[in-house]
Amino acid sequence: MYENTYPEKRFKITLEFLKKHAPPPAKILDLGVENPFSRLLSSEGYTVENTKGQDLDEDQKQLKTSSAEITTAFEIFEHLLSPLEVLKSLQSDYLFASVPLKLWFAKAYQSRTDPWDRHYHEFEQWQFDWLLDKAGWEIIDSESFTHPVKKIGLRPVLRYFTPRYYLVFCKRKP
């Protein structure tokens, strides 16, 4: 099972989705600081450049100057006030992105200790599709998946059946 080789179920699903459409080697600009998943991408043969922790709502310089073929943004857009501007600033021809979906049984996440660790947006699938379209991206493929948590209660049980993440592969519109 995935726990033996991947720290999280979503890592396995996301990596398989990426490899299906863009097998290594490929040059990737990964939005967000280096993290366990970007290190996994590197170990799988991708060349990965991460953003440096800058506030992407305010500073898109690295996005506008990157020569990466692909941009990845896994669980990033929900943290931005203006994801439209970030999406429009990307220079790559392809985008892989995932967002947590809005759940009727859970409020948007907000850390009480870390001001950066909060969700300004929790998308419904149609909302994220619309955002991508408006920013000039065409969705080629998508997948929704659940992400159960190892806790007891009604919400953890609902997470076994309710899709939590939405993953897309996009191409820049001509």
Rank of each mutant, 00 (worst) to 15 (best):
Y2P: 05
E3P: 00
N4H: 14
N4C: 07
Y6F: 15
P7A: 05
P7I: 12
R10N: 14
T14D: 05
T14Y: 09
T14P: 01
L15G: 02
E16S: 15
F17S: 11
F17H: 09
L18C: 05
P24G: 09
P24F: 05
P24W: 06
K27V: 08
K27E: 13
L29D: 07
D30N: 10
D30G: 07
L31T: 02
G32S: 08
V33F: 01
V33M: 14
P36L: 08
P36T: 03
P36N: 01
F37W: 02
S38D: 02
S38M: 03
R39F: 05
G45T: 08
G45P: 01
G45R: 10
Y46L: 02
V48W: 04
E49Q: 13
T51N: 04
K52I: 00
G53D: 01
Q54N: 03
L56S: 06
L56K: 04
D59K: 06
D59R: 08
Q60A: 11
K61I: 06
K61L: 03
K64D: 01
S66L: 03
S67M: 07
I70P: 09
I70H: 07
I70E: 11
A73D: 02
E75L: 05
E75S: 13
F77A: 04
F77R: 03
E78S: 06
H79L: 04
H79A: 11
L80Y: 12
L81T: 05
L81D: 09
L84K: 12
L84D: 14
V86F: 10
L87Q: 07
K88S: 14
S89G: 11
L90V: 05
L90C: 07
Q91S: 14
Q91V: 07
D93W: 04
F96W: 11
A97L: 11
V99R: 12
V99M: 06
P100S: 10
L101P: 05
L103C: 04
W104K: 07
W104Y: 09
A106Y: 00
A106M: 06
Y109Q: 04
Q110L: 11
D114V: 11
D114T: 06
D117L: 08
D117P: 01
R118K: 14
H119N: 08
Y120P: 00
Y120A: 08
H121D: 02
F123T: 06
E124V: 03
Q125K: 15
Q125F: 10
W126I: 10
F128W: 15
F128I: 13
D129T: 00
D129V: 00
W130E: 06
L132G: 09
D133K: 15
D133T: 13
D133R: 14
D133N: 14
K134Y: 15
K134Q: 15
A135H: 12
I140V: 15
I140S: 09
D141Y: 10
S142M: 01
S142L: 00
S142Q: 13
E143D: 01
E143W: 01
E143R: 12
F145K: 07
F145S: 02
T146H: 01
T146P: 00
V149Y: 10
K150C: 00
K150D: 06
K150H: 04
K151W: 02
G153S: 04
L154V: 10
V157W: 15
R159D: 05
F161S: 07
F161K: 09
T162G: 00
Y166A: 08
V168W: 03
C170V: 10
K173A: 15
P174L: 14
P174I: 12
P174A: 15
